[in-house]
Design a protein around this nucleic acid. Structure first.
Lengths: 336, 336
DNA sequence: TTGAGAAAATAAAACCTTTTCTCATATCCC
DNA sequence: GGGATATGAGAAAAGGTTTTATTTTCTCAA
């Protein structure tokens, strides 16, 4: 009962080629037949077979997603999954669908790039903090349109939050409130975002004439709660006077930071103010509700989508290489 | 520079058919040539074109995911995204990949079923609380292998948490602790899970000789924080004596419940104990840390994957129609 | 009426596999 | 040694589109 384009052609006394042109191409066909065919096609609900189309046309309307090993969070990662959701929504409006890139097909193993070629994906979105995988480097340097979120590389178009802006806002706020002993807890610096936030933190201190003190800073050995907790412990141990402000470079870290502070008899925000980074959806439900830097996941996802579609459609010239999405400081209860 | 199976055949002095058989089929070919070809193929990194393969073989090794409109959460939904992650991990081990089903291809709109046919997906996973969409019903009643999580329908294989077990454990615990005025806050009953939890709650009360009191129960008008908050308010207003236990049928609701309780001068857990449902990853970081029913997302995702692959591979007989995954009670600080 | 040129439609090749059927060769048994 | 059977490999069709080159049809001016 499944119809082919050939059947449709027969039923309409036309050739398959004409039907094809009407459905997808833009060759010469009269307005009259075009409308007639469109009407009929809609009526019988005909849709051209996808694999045959891809085979011949070498275009799939499929976008590959590299979404791997993000701190072993995968799809559950609150930031990346949100970005992906908005990316998905955006591209679907333009008839694209998304599929996760894997490194095998059936029994055969292959590189990401090879996979993309074999699948004829039109482009890829790279969502990962992990920059140094040969698989990804190969992909980025290929001719496949690619956009990344949160990962900066030569010749790779990227959308990121304006980390510098966020850090500056947080530090400015602390200064404004008269806080003196500003400290910071970063995630592993192998991640670009953390690295950049640390740089910005140094810079922002400098702006206010404060010198960066090693003992008020600690790099967590892991991303989550434990990382934040242990890093804070280290700061407390290494400093005569406890800090009165700690900038946690992610909300997850912040939870650990606060817990550690409290375990050491310090009250948040009375004794020390804490600011996180992300504004994950649980931030507002913590006690105290977490002050944090809001990252606009929707803007990021959509900007990445737009850029990727632009590249695919050949509008290369108008694409700026790295786009920074503004962030904003949200003050809740974890700061004075 | 891209090689076809025809090129490979030529280079090895064989026919394309033979190469194909070696790579994927299982026809008659001698061990010697098989090994020779396999070696060469690996060496040059040849992989057969996907669309041509799908076109001819009518099998795609692609699994469609219906993942729509879950309370407008999408991929960010902590429960479903986790289940999906584990599903994905499992099927990838067997050479399958996943793609999100959408309701259009390029410019053309189509039903989920049509989409699956056109794309030749081998099976679908339905991840949604929303049962009554014609699109989904049509899909379920088709000949496409389907498995769902959290959605029970005739002739649909399903994997769910053992909601009854969870509720019973929670109620048992409350009774054991001597709590007397047990109340419950449910999410919208249009969702099967909530409906079943409510049934179980009634039953569990009965088991202990307690009658279900309408004024100690409230159905939230939405899924999240606000839903829980307002539902609790209603209970407080409708009852002479405040409950000393409230079973929130999700962690998200529980946050609202606790907030409302506290806003009304009731201390958790001193005055009233609260138990949630899910054990989302933020549950342990709330204050007080939330006691809750742990749902095993990994077991659910993997069971669903296994079932789907079984159906696809024709092992229909050995499939039980609805599989309930055990849950467990986790006591933290929100209960006495 | 004719013919040039534009517009519309067609025919057929190409895209790259898989699979069925057939053929050739090797193996076996009496 | 000869017929029967197994085994390995190939030829060719089929799968359903898109696209290029070609033909047919139409329009309009001379």
């Amino acid at each position: 009962m499944k119809r082919t384009i050939y059947d449709v052609a027969k039923e309409m006394n036309l050739s398959p080629g004409t039907i094809s042109k009407i459905l997808h191409g833009n060759g010469n066909v009269s307005q009259a037949t075009r409308e007639r065919v469109l009407k009929y096609v809609k009526e019988i609900g005909f849709v051209a077979d996808s694999s045959a189309r891809i085979l011949k046309a070498k275009k799939s309307y499929v976008l590959g997603i590299v979404f791997s090993d993000i701190a072993h969070f995968g799809l559950e990662h609150p930031f990346f999954s949100s970005v992906l959701q908005h990316f998905k929504n955006y591209v679907e409006r333009f008839g694209y669908e998304i599929v996760f890139i894997v490194n095998r097909i059936g029994e055969q193993e292959l590189s990401y790039l090879k996979w993309c070629k074999v699948k004829k994906v039109d482009g890829v979105l790279i969502v990962t903090g992990n920059i140094n995988k040969p698989n990804i480097i190969e992909l980025v340097n290929s001719d496949i349109p690619a956009v990344s979120v949160d990962m900066v590389m030569d010749n790779l178009v990227t959308v990121i939050s304006d980390d510098g802006m966020g850090i500056e806002q947080g530090v400015d706020y602390a200064i404004e409130k008269g806080l003196k002993r500003l400290s910071a807890v970063s995630g592993p610096l192998t991640s670009r975002a953390y690295f950049e936030r640390l740089e910005a933190f140094r810079w922002a201190l400098g702006k206010h004439g404060i010198s960066f003190k090693e003992n008020y800073y600690s790099e967590a050995e892991s991303y989550g709660f434990n990382g934040g907790y242990n890093a804070t412990k280290k700061i407390l141990e290494n400093s005569e006077k406890a800090p009165d402000f700690v900038f946690a470079f992610s909300d997850e870290l912040a939870i650990g930071v606060i817990k550690c502070l409290e375990d050491n008899g310090l009250r948040v925000p009375l004794d020390v103010s804490v600011i996180g980074f992300d504004d994950n959806y649980f931030a507002k439900h913590l006690t105290p509700a977490l002050s944090t830097i809001y990252q606009d996941k929707q803007a990021i996802g959509e900007a990445a989508a737009k850029k990727l579609l632009d590249i695919i459609e050949g509008k290369k010239e108008k694409i700026v290489k790295v786009e920074k999405i503004p962030v904003s400081l949200i003050i809740r209860e974890s700061t004075i």
